[in-house]
């Protein structure tokens, strides 16, 4: 009897390992390919049939792509994404002061509006925004791109931040008020500092969303010197041959900041992610 149970348990455990291996291959296989291709010498990148394990590793592709241009693109990306994060946090902290007061009339329609704008197809907004930016001279400008990024980051940031702020117990605000702080003072000096981890999570999530962008950069930046890194990646796809080794090396560079953020702030990151999607 116990032998059957033990055998059944062993079969189940084996099944778990097989499934885990399959999942690992599916998820990590492509990433393995990205990393190894970036480290292969050109002759092996263009070997057909492809070599699954490189026979020698080289950083030649990285050396090839680490040009002043690429560094400029990288700097542009970092500046635009950090700028977006700062502006987005400032505006959403302001908005959330009002949106966390349940007594305010007209709060619900605003919240609905914020949510709906988060679900709109960005492609629809693209043409009018492009034309408006053209008129205002904001094309090919890092500031213009930051403002454009707020289209999809600000609604999410307001929504997430409000969730984190509402989770701070009301008694703390009441106590601050009885100590003589104004309503805004209580918000700014007591509630927001207490919600610091939440504010950090929102900031990280906004940076992440901005770093993911491709469509707005594609439309707003046509001047080569203003390009961000995603466009640098695209520019490497020539019309005839694609230098896959270099392309994968640039891709790896584009992954680094996101991996750093993810490694050092995983807790905040997951908090922002789950709060953003499900608690809604």
């Amino acid at each position: 009897m116990s032998a059957t149970i033990a055998r059944r348990r062993a079969t189940r455990q084996a099944g778990v390992y097989v499934a885990a291996a399959a999942l690992a291959v599916f998820v990590l296989g492509p990433i393995f390919w990205l990393v190894t291709t970036s480290l292969k010498p050109r002759s092996e990148v263009f070997a057909s049939p492809p070599k699954f394990l490189p026979t020698e590793l080289t950083f030649a592709n990285y050396a090839d792509v680490l040009t002043p241009d690429t560094l400029q693109f990288f700097a542009n990306s970092v500046i635009v994404c950090l700028g977006t994060t700062v502006m987005c946090l400032a505006f959403s902290l302001l908005a959330c002061f009002t949106l966390t007061r349940t007594g305010t009339r007209g709060r619900k329609p605003i919240l609905v509006g914020v949510l709906v704008s988060q679900l709109l197809p960005q492609a629809v907004l693209l043409v009018p925004l492009y034309r408006a930016a053209d008129t205002l001279g904001l094309l090919n400008s890092r500031f213009g791109l930051m403002v454009a990024f707020m289209t999809f980051t600000l609604p999410v940031a307001i929504w997430l931040l409000r969730g984190f702020l509402m989770a701070i117990p009301l008694e703390l605000e009441e106590a601050a008020r009885l100590d003589g702080l104004s309503e805004f003072g209580a918000y700014w000096r007591v509630i927001v500092p207490l919600a610091k981890p939440g504010v950090a999570a929102v900031g990280i999530y906004v940076f992440f969303m901005a770093w993911q962008d491709f469509m707005y950069s594609l439309v707003f930046l046509t001047d080569a010197s203003k390009r961000t890194l995603p466009l640098g990646v695209l520019a490497l796809i020539g019309s005839h041959t694609i230098e896959w080794g270099q392309l994968m090396a640039v891709s790896a560079l584009l992954l680094v900041p996101i991996l750093l953020v993810f490694t050092f702030a995983q807790r905040y990151f997951i908090a922002g992610l789950t709060a953003g999607a499900v608690k809604g």
Binding site: F91, T98, L125, V127, T151
Partner: peptide, 22 residues
């Protein structure tokens, strides 16, 4: 309260409502 909500909502109006209407 009104003062705090106006700038973010105006920005969203310019970035989302106007483009949609346009």
């Amino acid at each position: 309260r009104v003062l705090c909500i106006v700038p973010p909502i105006a920005l969203l109006g310019a970035l989302v409502v106007y483009p949609l209407a346009n």
